[in-house]
Computed example of a mutant assay.
Amino acid sequence: MTSTRTTATAAGVLFLVTHVTSVTALALYGPVLSNKHFITGSGPETPVLLGALLEVLLALAIVGTAVALFPVIKRTNEAVALGYVGLRTLEAAVVAVGVVPLLAVTTLRHDVPTQSGTVPLGEAMVALHNWMFLVGPSLVCGTNTVLLAYLLHRSRLVPRFIAALGLIGGPLVFASGTAQMFGLIDQISVWAALAAIPVFAWEICLALFMLVKGFRTPAEAHAALVPSASTLEPTVL
Score class of each variant (00 low, 15 high):
L172P: 10
F38R: 08
P234L: 08
W202I: 04
Y84E: 04
L134E: 04
F200K: 05
S176C: 12
L58T: 14
L157T: 06
A229Y: 00
L57I: 14
V212Y: 00
A207Q: 07
L194N: 05
V212K: 10
V146G: 13
W131I: 11
T21P: 03
T7H: 05
I162D: 09
T2Y: 04
F133V: 08
S116K: 01
L206G: 14
R75C: 05
L33H: 02
V80R: 15
L57D: 06
L211G: 04
A68G: 12
A92P: 07
L50W: 04
G12L: 05
L211S: 09
I73H: 08
S228Q: 14
S176T: 03
P44R: 12
F215P: 09
L60V: 15
V99K: 06
S228R: 14
C141A: 15
L90A: 15
I204W: 07
L134K: 02
T76Q: 13
L57G: 15
A68I: 10
T114S: 12
A96M: 14
P218H: 13
A223M: 03
M181Q: 04
E233N: 04
C141W: 07
A124P: 05
F182Q: 07
L54E: 12
A175E: 10
M132P: 01
L134G: 14
P113T: 04
A221I: 09
V20M: 10
M125T: 08
A163F: 04
I162Q: 09
V173H: 01
S228K: 13
E45I: 15
V226M: 01
T217I: 01
T231K: 10
